[in-house]
């Protein structure tokens, strides 16, 4: 496996955050699991699809015409959907973390579980900010399809931007502007990035977009 990784182009190994032959190979491989495209897609899909279905989808279906003529404050709708996101995302990350612990015990990797806990928490807050962003976009839309395509489009564009920065050394100066730099499990478990800063920025983004979502949902026509 190590020799296979060593044969890959350097740009690619930099991109996946795994360099063969180093002492941290096992740690890096485990961390790569956290950023594997399948994991990213499944985590992001939930954050995008829940607001699209339960905000824009309900607006499109006109089911709010009955629900919001009951004695219910409007902000409860986006707030409860956000709570739903927290629970769903929390369960996903708990499952990922349990998988890491199980892997560590089974293969006796002797990794520092606390570092992975840190990566899990950073990931949780990062994807929550993504969900909050998706919620804000969905409150401006009236069709679920458009809400989904705009949110997915934005996330893909941000991911693409991050990939280009990772692959091109001449674009290193743009590193600080990449959204996906807030979630770098490979670097987090090796203490190469400041986890608290990632959490702080993700929380600020979450709060900001959640506020936009609540304000827009409160004032919009249904």
């Amino acid at each position: 496996m190590v020799s296979f990784i060593q044969r890959l182009p350097p740009a690619f190994t930099t991109f996946i955050g795994v360099q063969g032959g180093t002492a941290q190979f096992a740690t890096q491989m485990l961390a790569f699991g956290y950023t594997h495209p399948i994991i990213i897609i499944s985590l992001a899909f939930l954050q995008v699809s829940i607001p699209a279905r339960y905000i824009t989808g309900e607006i499109e279906l006109k089911t709010f015409d009955i629900l919001l003529t009951k004695p219910l404050k409007r902000f409860i709708i986006p707030s409860s959907i956000f709570t739903f996101l927290i629970i769903a995302l929390g369960l996903q990350f708990i499952a990922i973390f349990l998988g890491t612990i199980a892997g560590d015990l089974y293969f006796d990797l002797q990794i520092n579980i606390a570092d992975y806990g840190k990566a899990v928490f950073v990931g949780f807050v990062f994807f929550l900010s993504m969900g909050s962003m998706a919620m804000a976009i969905c409150t401006f839309q009236i069709e679920k399809g458009k809400a989904l395509s705009k949110t997915i489009g934005l996330i893909v564009a941000l991911y693409f931007f991050d990939t280009i920065i990772k692959l091109s050394k001449s674009l290193d100066h743009l590193y600080a502007y990449s959204y996906f730099q807030l979630y770098q499990p490979g670097k987090l478990v090796q203490n190469q990035v400041d986890a608290s800063l990632c959490v702080l920025i993700s929380l600020v983004l979450t709060g900001l977009f959640l506020m936009v979502a609540i304000l827009q949902f409160n004032k919009r026509d249904l």
């Binding site: 006109k62 089911t63 015409d65 009955i66 003529t69 009951k70 004695p71 219910l72």
Partner: peptide
């Protein structure tokens, strides 16, 4: 609205249920 709607029954024009 949240206080008023306690005493209102509404049948929407385009009725969509769960």
């Amino acid at each position: 609205y949240d206080k008023i709607f306690n005493t209102i029954g509404n049948v929407p024009g385009e009725l969509r249920l769960y």
